Amino acid sequence: MEVHSRKIIFITGITGFTGKHLEEYYSKRGFGVYGTTFTEPSSSNHFKCDILEEEELFKILNKVKPEYIIHLAAISFVAAKDQKNIYNVNIFGTLSLLNAVTKLDYLPTKILIASSAAVYGNIEGELGEELCPQPVNHYGNSKLVMENMVKGYYDRLNIIIVRPFNYTGTGQENHFLIPKIVSHYKENKKEIELGNINVYREFNDVHYVVKCYTELLFSKFKSDIFNVCSGNAININYILSVMNQLAGYAIKVNVNPKFVRKNEIDILKGNPRKLFAHIGDFTNEFTFNNTLEHMYNENRI
């Protein structure tokens, strides 16, 4: 395997939802893109690796010698049953990566680490980085602990931490809300079980997130935390109305109490002021209606 010494990007969790979109984006732009996967690799640029294995990671990184690293590998589903594994992977997997990087004989230009807006918890309104995080589940708490541990590497490595708010797109698994809704319409189902459909949440396009990550990755900024958000909250009812139009029929919504979170707040969105001040505002390049349309038309006969 030929590995070039420049313009190499390394992505942990490269076969996940976001990883696939990042790999496609950078590959089209001439970068050498490599990464880790927990399953058997289908590409010569992918390495099967448990990110908890520091020495294994070091050997891969030492071979690839990436200039940029994007750390995505995590337990990302809030309802994951193995709670100990959430903390193990999300915290110690990240530390394993950073420890492996510190053993390299060079300093990567930038490391972007994906945290989550889940660190904020159930705080009403528009959430900015200055707020004190109050996570309400194991996933959010694991990400907050991870952030605090990563700050200890600021003096040795060039790191940016991102807190993405909800985003979606083609290839996201159906246990997430938007793919679940779209899949019901694609399968022409007449009914769907949902939780509270009157809430407002951000649902950005994964391509918007890719662009934000890219701008931050290649920026001069380091040792900082950024919300990756648009500040645009969308009502679930609106999503259903758009899908009704796309599919040509109205689905029946059954509210399942199991899906309604206790003390659920009406509006939750990110404050993008800091993000926009540093990389600009390009939200007008992406519309949620187009996102839904692409997801609905993907692989349809």
Rank of each mutant, 00 (worst) to 15 (best):
N299A: 12
N62D: 12
L216H: 07
Q172F: 01
K103E: 11
I160C: 07
E129M: 09
N235Q: 15
G280V: 03
Q83W: 15
T291P: 11
F38N: 14
A73S: 13
E130C: 09
E24Y: 04
T102G: 11
S230K: 11
V33C: 12
I251D: 03
V64S: 06
K220L: 06
T109D: 05
N297K: 15
V64P: 00
F92K: 14
T283P: 00
I181T: 05
Y106Q: 10
E130T: 13
C229F: 00
V101C: 06
I265Y: 12
T39Y: 10
V3H: 10
I113A: 00
Y25C: 01
P272V: 07
R163S: 03
E298D: 10
G93Q: 00
N227Q: 03
N62T: 01
E285K: 15
L217T: 02
E193W: 03
A73C: 10
I160F: 13
I86M: 11
E55Q: 13
N88P: 07
H175Y: 15
G121Y: 04
L127W: 14
V64M: 09
L52Y: 05
A247R: 06
K262S: 09
N290H: 14
I234R: 01
V136Q: 09
G35A: 01
M295C: 06
F221Y: 15
E56A: 05
F47P: 08
F282N: 15
V64C: 08
G231D: 10
Y213W: 12
L98W: 01
N198V: 10
Y167V: 04
Y213R: 04
E55V: 09
A100L: 02
K110Q: 06
Q134E: 09
V89M: 08
D105Y: 04
T37S: 13
P272Y: 01
V242W: 09
K20F: 01
R261V: 14
I160H: 03
F47S: 04
R29A: 10
I91G: 04
R6Y: 06
N196C: 05
T170G: 00
M1Y: 01
N227I: 00
I265L: 13
Y208T: 14
M146A: 02
L97K: 05
V64I: 06
L57S: 02
V64N: 08
G231L: 11
Y249G: 04
S76R: 03
A233R: 08
N289R: 15
Y167H: 08
L246K: 10
L268R: 13
E187D: 10
K20S: 09
E53A: 03
H4T: 13
G35Q: 01
S219W: 11
N263Y: 08
M243E: 09
L112P: 06
K180N: 09
K269D: 05
K190W: 03
Y120Q: 03
N244I: 03
N263H: 10
F17H: 01
H207V: 12
